[in-house]
Amino acid sequence: MHELSVAATMVDLAVEEAARLGAVRIHALHLRLGRLSGIVKEALIFSWDAACQGTALEGANLVIEDIPAAIYCGGCDTERELQSIQHFVCAVCGASSVEIVRGGELEIAALEIE
């Protein structure tokens, strides 16, 4: 369970960015969260308010965009979304692949500021 420390890092980065942008208020932080990031979404949401307390983000919303995992399938020569991260196989041809092209994201996408 390291979501609280991850949330705290997010807050630090956002405060820094907001200051750079000359923001007077931060309404929301938009996060891209990959299925293979190792971060538990519910735990992150649960930690959010505590991490924001006493900072410029107090009261700010956390908006999470879930990024599904995707592999590159050599057989089909294309990217395929995984149906489940327990099965690294192409959903169309059934070939297995370890070439991950998406899903590891833990990225602040945007800030809603004024």
Binding site: T9, L13, R25, L106, E107, A109, A110, L111, E112
Partner: peptide
């Protein structure tokens, strides 16, 4: 004075330090 919130793209890896 109330400004309108605007969405600013950041694109920052949270674990970039590590």
């Amino acid at each position: 004075m109330m400004g309108t919130p605007r969405l600013v793209e950041i694109r920052q890896n949270v674990l970039k330090q590590n």
